[in-house]
Simulated assay, not measured.
Amino acid sequence: MALGVHLVAEAQDAPQRLPVITLQAGMHNISAQLAKTPEQRQIGLMFRKEMASHEGMLFAFEVPATQCFWMKNTLLPLSAAFVADDGTIVNIEDMAPQTEASHCSKKPVRFVLEMNQGWFAKRGLKAGSRLTGPAFSG
């Protein structure tokens, strides 16, 4: 029995791998892992030591709400784009690794896209920019 508990604990300390969807930000393609269950969203990008520049994670929620994120057990500096149903970026927040500061959407949203910190800024993307892909209705 103790072995089973150890394996579960070990699995929780490893990055999760989720289905990937392709999103676009203008001419830039994003390979985004899709976190859509409460468990997947809670783990997010925790324990990941590296992430390619075109990779990220899209958090999809059931209904629009003020979404707040923190960086507990997250090793990489990230930028989070809070995204409306039509793919419009509401706001972007830079988040420091392994902190518990709360970073929230400025209005209710159903989507949050986490990328390596600075990814959006380097591509000139900001509030009002639009993402496209199968997740968005616009």
Rank of each mutant, 00 (worst) to 15 (best):
F47W: 15
D85M: 14
A60Q: 10
G4C: 07
T99L: 10
L113K: 03
E62A: 13
G56L: 05
A65H: 00
P64I: 02
Q33E: 15
G4R: 05
R130D: 08
M57K: 07
Q40P: 01
G56E: 02
Q117E: 13
A2F: 13
V5H: 09
R110E: 01
A2C: 03
D13S: 11
S129C: 12
M46E: 08
A32C: 14
W70K: 03
I89L: 05
H103R: 08
R48G: 07
I89W: 09
R110D: 01
A121V: 07
K122F: 08
Q40A: 13
T37F: 08
L58F: 00
P19T: 15
K126I: 03
C68M: 04
Q98K: 15
V83A: 01
Q33W: 15
N116G: 06
M115C: 06
N116I: 09
V109I: 03
P134I: 15
Q16W: 12
K72N: 03
L7C: 04
A127N: 02
L75Q: 05
E55I: 02
T132K: 13
Q40R: 01
K106L: 14
L131N: 05
N91F: 07
K36R: 10
A84Q: 13
T132N: 10
G133I: 07
G138E: 13
R130E: 12
G118K: 05
N91H: 04
K72I: 03
W70S: 02
F82T: 01
L45G: 05
S137E: 14
A121G: 02
R17N: 09
Q98E: 15
A35W: 07
N116Y: 05
M51S: 03
A35L: 07
V63L: 06
S79H: 01
F136K: 04
Q24E: 15
P97D: 06
L78N: 04
I92A: 03
Q67T: 00
I43C: 00
H54Q: 14
D86Q: 12
E62N: 10
N29V: 08
H54R: 10
M57S: 10
V8C: 02
M46R: 03
L18W: 07
F69K: 01
K36Y: 04
Q42K: 06
Q16Y: 09
G138F: 14
A52T: 10
P15E: 11
F59D: 00
R123A: 05
N29C: 12
P97Y: 08
A32I: 11
H54S: 14
S31E: 15
D86F: 13
G87Y: 12
A121H: 06
G133V: 12
T66Q: 05
K106F: 06
G118M: 10
K122E: 15
W70D: 05
A84R: 14
I89Q: 01
G44D: 02
L3Q: 05
E50K: 13
I89V: 11
A52K: 15
K36D: 04
M27N: 06
A135I: 05
M95D: 08
F69N: 02
Q12H: 09
M51F: 10
V8T: 00
L3C: 09
W119V: 11
E55N: 09
K106H: 08
F61E: 00
M95S: 05
R130A: 12
K107V: 01
